[in-house]
Amino acid sequence: MAKVKGAIVIDIEKCKGCGLCVEVCPQKVIALGDKVNAKGYFYADVVNENCTACENCVMICPDTVITLYRAKVEV
């Protein structure tokens, strides 16, 4: 059976660490890390691979730093 899987890439240098994407992700794929970027923000990063490409994070991100990929994979 084919299943829709997603993946995201976060532009960490442009992320301001607001945490809105962490809040809306139903799979808890994103979390704020303990590392800072050049601007001094604790940026958001991916912590697990359960992304379902629901688009919540890209919709809420104010700085459009997330790129979303979606593919059908056989399981």
Binding site: G6, A7, V46, V58, L68, Y69
Partner: peptide
């Protein structure tokens, strides 16, 4: 980061970008 994402992260699979 993840092995399983390498298959997905390709230009033809982009669902959303800036």
């Amino acid at each position: 980061k993840f092995e399983s994402w390498k298959e997905i992260i390709k230009d033809e699979n982009i669902a959303f970008k800036k």
